[in-house]
Amino acid sequence: MNILTCFKIVSDLDLMSESDWVVEDHFRINTSFVKNMINPYDESALEITLLYKEQAEKLGSAVNLSALTIGSKQLDAYLKTLYALRFDKAVRIENQHDLRFSPDAISTVIANYVKVIKKPEVIILGRQSGVGDNAKTPLLVAEHLGWPCISQAVKIEPASEGLLKVSSMADDGLVIETIRPPCVLSIGNAPNSYLRIPTLKDKVNYGKKEIEVLEIENYLNQAVLEQPSEGHNITGLKPINHKRQGVVIEGSTPAEKAQNLYHNYLQERLKQL
């Protein structure tokens, strides 16, 4: 089975301080000074993909894994790590355009790439990423390809005859389906799915394979790239104010602080609950 897992590298926005949230021209925000990371939902997608491969290979099924990201050369370090984790192919589609709020453009690129290589039977993506918080890319990839989509997937296991057993969260329970590919799987809150770390030996042996670099213009019209037509345009952006009083309860010991909290602030409120 051929699986394509798509991921995005994002800034760790939780490291930004209050004064860093400055809106610049074209509603841009400079987040370049905080460290990057794999978008958490995409990190789960990558780890779930690797877990699937391990299980399928134990059952004697061959699995070919490709990883795809869209962005600049600095993302290659992440793709090398994925090679070291035994992905078979790492692809980067070079892009310098602002596609933060353009999930339709991103999904068109992914779908067109898939149509060209005609390979993957399964596409796995995280359900949402910070910055745009669009939460639409996996759904629109499925629409562009005319494939079914299972959203909020949390577990993927091999089943017989090339089928997949997919567990996904529903609003009032867990759905476990045996699926016949092709399909798009959108990964939701999947506990214990932090991406594993490659060994030094695997980094040396596998981490230096060549990354396939493609031009985004081959997968999306230039005019659309310059002005993505999503049916929506951003027209405003401002920080959300989370400030409250922040009164610090003083005391020389934890006991004194707890006493102060209880007697001055909690006791009466607890009676009213």
Partner: peptide, 20 residues
């Protein structure tokens, strides 16, 4: 249709105009 939603992992509030 003018819509507001949180973006940037809920640090920012954005305004969008939906046209289609």
């Amino acid at each position: 249709l003018t819509c507001h939603k949180a973006v940037y992992s809920n640090y920012m509030q954005a305004e969008f105009k939906l046209s289609e």
